[in-house]
Amino acid sequence: MMTYWSHQSISPVISAIFLAPLLFGVINWIKAFLSGRRGAPWLQPYFDLWKLMRKSAVYSRTTTWIFRAGPLVGLGAILTAAMIMPMGNIPALVSFPGDFVLFAYLLALGRFFTIIAALDTGSSFQGMGASREAYFSALSEPALLLALTAVARRTGSNSLSGMYEVLSSGSWALVSPAMVLVFIAIFIVFLTENARIPVDDPTTHLELTMIHEVMVLDHGGPDLAFINYGAALKMWILGQLLIGIVNPVHTGIMWLNQTISIVVSLSGPAIAVGLIEFSMARLRLKRVPQLLVAAGIFSVLALIMELR
C-alpha cells in the first residue's frame, strides 16, 4: 500500500494539464454542432487563456489579498488533485489508500477560496453566487464520497488508481447495477461541480441566476485565466472519474492505452455534456438540491447493493 511512482504515471497529469482546455473547446463545438451552428475552433479556449494572461489586472478597492489568492488556490488545488487522479488504468502520479478523500477535500479547498474571494468583493451578487456554490457542493460531497466508497468496495482497493486499475482490467465484468448507480451519482456531481446545465448555466447573462459565473465576476486578466483554466482542469479530472468506470480499455500496450484513454476522456464528457446542454434547460434553483440528494440516494443504493 505504499506510495508508488512510475514513469508512466506522469501521463495522466501531463495530459490533464495540456488537454483540459481542449475539453471545453470540444464541448462548445459539440453544442454548436448539435444546434446546427458552426462552433468555434477546438483550440479556442487556449487562445482565450493566452489572451487573458497577457492582460493587465484591475482589482476592486474593497478587496484584500484573499481576492487575489482565490484563483491561485483554486487552480493550485485542482492541479494538486490532478496528481492523484489516474487516467483509466494508468495510475496517477501519487496514489495511496484513501486518496479519493484527499481528492474531494482538495476540490473543497479550491472551492473554499473561490467562495471567500467572491465574498471579498463585498458585492451582493457575488455573495449570492458564493452562497449557492457552497450549498450545492455541501450536498454533492457526500454523494461523491459514497459513490467512490461503493467503487472501492466493488474493486477491493481504496485508492483511486487502484480502483480504476481494477475497473478497467476487469472490463465489463465488474459492471453491475450498482456501478450504473454510481455512474449516475458521479455524473450528477460532475455536472454540479463544473457548473453545467441542469445545475448552472455557464452561458447565462443574468447574474441573479448564476452560480459559478457570478462568483468570479470581478476577476479579470491572469486571475480569470487561472479560473478558467482551473475550471477546465476540474472538468477534466472529474471526467476521469466517470470515464474510468465505463472505459474498459485494457489493451496491454501502453501507448495505445494512453491514446485511447485520452480520446475517450475528451469525447466522453464532451458528448455527454453537449447532449445534455443541448436538450435540457437549467433547473430551477430550488430543484437543484433535490437533484443532489437524488445523487446521494443513488450512491447509498449502490453501496447497499455492494454491501449485501
Binding site: 489586472a57 482589482y59 474593497t62 463585498g122 458585492s123 486578466g221
Partner: peptide, 19 residues
C-alpha cells in the same frame, strides 16, 4: 507566475463591479 505575468502590466484599482 502571476507576479511575473503582472510585473510588466499596469495594475489598477477600482470599485467592485456593481452589476
Amino acid at each position: 507566475f502571476r507576479k511575473w505575468l503582472l510585473s510588466k502590466r499596469y495594475v489598477q484599482e477600482g470599485v467592485t463591479w456593481d452589476c
